[in-house]
């Protein structure tokens, strides 16, 4: 899916010819020491960062270089390393904003297609409430997102991503900033998504977690792919060990 992707920032090759595949329906892990280029790769897949060269194919369609609102509409949905929510909106509104393709987008559409739009909106609210129940935060539907804890924000963020029914879900360190009580909840949620057959790319630095959840894994170091395979292979690979020791 991803081929020969490269990006430099001011002469530094952050990502230098990265190729790997995310098999459909897999929970692919991406690991590597700090500065390996993981977030840059994720940003390029999401369209937030424009690659210098290379190709990204989503189910055969080229998406490299598309602006991020377009990749989002194609079904590539991401979360951010720092849990990102709209603070001045309620939890429910945050989830509702996650849904492309935006039929009620224009004022004209909102006025003309009102009945259809209202029905869609009702369905979406229903789905959002179901998701909130599943995430265990039903009681917070009308709370402003700014008032949530780090872990709760993360749940809202993942819920927002799930609302879009993504074809590829990109999770950038979903455990970052999450309390120890909520971490297992989020881990269980990600495992459930895998069981349901959602295609996920997960960036994580805690290797034990990646080992429990992901197959296959992609190991990045210094902007290049060291290997792609199972976590057990990665652990046995001397190059990977060296990268972690050096990095």
């Amino acid at each position: 899916m991803v081929e020969d992707l490269a990006k430099s920032f001011g002469g530094v090759h952050a990502v230098d010819g990265v190729s790997f595949a995310i098999p459909r329906g897999s929970l692919t892990g991406m690991i590597g020491p700090n500065g390996a280029g993981k977030s840059t790769v994720l940003g390029m897949i999401a369209g937030a960062i424009r690659p210098d060269r290379g190709s990204i194919a989503l189910e055969g369609q080229e998406i490299a270089g598309l602006p991020s609102h377009r990749t989002a509409r194609r079904g590539v949905v991401r979360t951010f390393q720092a849990a990102s929510v709209f603070p001045r909106m309620t939890v429910l509104e945050n989830l509702l904003l996650g849904v492309p393709p935006w039929h009620g987008e224009g004022i004209a559409a909102a006025l003309l297609g009102r009945r259809r739009w209202r029905r869609e909106e009702r369905e979406q609210v229903l789905r959002a409430r179901e998701l909130l129940a599943r995430l265990g935060i039903s009681s917070m539907a009308d709370t402003f997102a700014a008032q949530l804890s780090g872990g709760q924000k993360r749940l809202v963020e993942i819920g927002r991503a799930m609302m879009a029914r993504p074809r590829l879900l990109l999770l950038d360190e979903p455990m970052a900033g999450v309390s120890r009580t909520l971490a297992p909840v989020i881990e269980a949620l990600v495992a459930e998504l895998r069981e349901e057959g959602m295609t996920v790319l997960l960036i994580e630095h805690e290797l034990a977690l990646v080992e429990r959840l992901c197959s296959p894994v992609v190991v990045l170091a210094q902007g290049r792919v060291l290997m792609q395979g199972e976590m057990a292979e990665a652990r046995a690979n001397p190059e990977v060990r060296r990268a972690y020791l050096v990095g």
């Binding site: 937030a48 991020s68 609102h69 989002a72 509702l96 492309p100 909102a110």
Partner: peptide, 27 residues
């Protein structure tokens, strides 16, 4: 329009976090 349309919600979200808005598919 701000309160009830998705566009209005997008507008409210945009100023706070443009990259999150884009990630939600907001042009």
């Amino acid at each position: 329009a701000l309160q009830y349309t998705r566009l209005g919600k997008a507008m409210r979200g945009l100023s706070v976090n443009p990259s999150l808005a884009r990630a939600c598919g907001v042009p």
